[in-house]
């Protein structure tokens, strides 16, 4: 801006836009900083206030099935000792509160804000010892993707598919796709074993190995296939349907065109 002033004595035509952008960045940045600090400040795992808020939310939204003191009813299991990680996963991915009874709880848009999810999680976590919400250092990648990929193939791929595209289980149950799941939820799923998933405790897969698995899944999420569109990463079935419908379909359409011209 200053440079253009010195050269022509007038404002550069883009100066207004630049100023506007700068202003937006500042306000947006300040707002983001403000909102994250407030979010971080509020639910502290130990504060009595958090737990009280969590209890209120629990009694209003979860107690019908899990009981007023999370002791469980005929409709839902006891949550004493499931840990904060379990609640953070189930409520944070929208699986709980459950929309309807079925083979397994389905993913839907979360019903609570991040803050409320944490309050609920710490309340249930305060009821008995259980897996806690993992530290950021374990869920933000940065591990060994190759080790994670190998562990994933051996421990996870038989249900979730090698590319994390998901797969079928018995009686209408299924392993969901992992293409869009956050690191913290993947970690929590491994330690708590939601729905039909087995628990992978820290003796089975160490926290560092879990971090590696998350690193691999994040690599796959962030780096799309070098070969082009993935057709859902579903393997030969999708490829076969594609070649019959679009490949052969296109070429047969061309044969019709080739022979029609001469008639």
């Amino acid at each position: 801006m200053t440079r253009s002033k010195r050269r022509t004595g007038r404002r550069h035509p883009l100066a207004t836009a630049a100023l506007l952008a700068l202003g937006l960045v500042f306000t947006g940045g300040a707002y983001a900083a403000f909102s994250t600090t407030t979010a971080q400040a509020e639910p502290s795992p130990t504060s009595q206030e958090t737990i009280e808020e969590g209890k209120k939310l629990f009694q209003a939204n979860c107690a019908t099935c899990h009981g007023l003191d999370a002791q469980g009813t005929s409709e839902g299991p006891s949550l004493i000792g499931v840990g904060a990680a379990s609640v953070d996963f189930q409520v944070g991915t929208g699986r709980m509160p459950m929309q309807m009874q079925g083979p397994q709880a389905q993913v839907k848009p979360p019903q609570f804000t991040d803050e409320q999810v944490k309050q609920l999680a710490y309340y249930v976590g305060s009821l008995g010892p259980g897996p806690d919400i993992p530290a950021d250092s374990l869920v933000n990648g940065g591990g060994d993707a190759a080790n994670g990929a190998e562990l994933f193939r051996i421990n996870c791929a038989m249900c979730h598919n090698v590319a994390g595209a998901g797969g079928a289980l018995t009686e209408g149950k299924y392993a969901p796709p992992l293409t869009d799941v956050s690191g913290v939820h993947i970690y929590e799923a491994m330690v708590t074993g939601p729905q039909n998933m087995p628990v992978f405790n820290d003796l089975n897969i160490t926290p560092e190995d879990k971090r590696d698995i998350i690193t691999y899944l994040q690599y796959v999420q962030d780096n799309r296939s070098p070969g082009g569109f993935e057709l859902g990463s579903l393997g030969p079935v999708a490829e076969g349907l594609f070649i019959w419908i679009f490949g052969l379909g296109a070429i047969v359409a061309i044969t019709v065109w080739i022979t029609a011209k001469s008639n």
């Binding site: 990929a149 190998e150 193939r153 051996i154 791929a157 038989m158 249900c159 979730h160 598919n161 090698v162 590319a163 595209a165 998901g166 797969g167 079928a168 392993a175 796959v220 296939s225 070098p226 070969g227 082009g228 569109f229 993935e230 057709l231 990463s233 579903l234 393997g235 030969p236 079935v237 490829e239």
Partner: peptide, 19 residues
């Protein structure tokens, strides 16, 4: 993409992928 072997990884008799 077809047959993304980099997803499948090397053969090892123990794992079998879903799908």
């Amino acid at each position: 993409t077809i047959n993304p072997i980099w997803n499948y990884g090397p053969y090892d008799p123990s794992p079998v992928s879903a799908g």
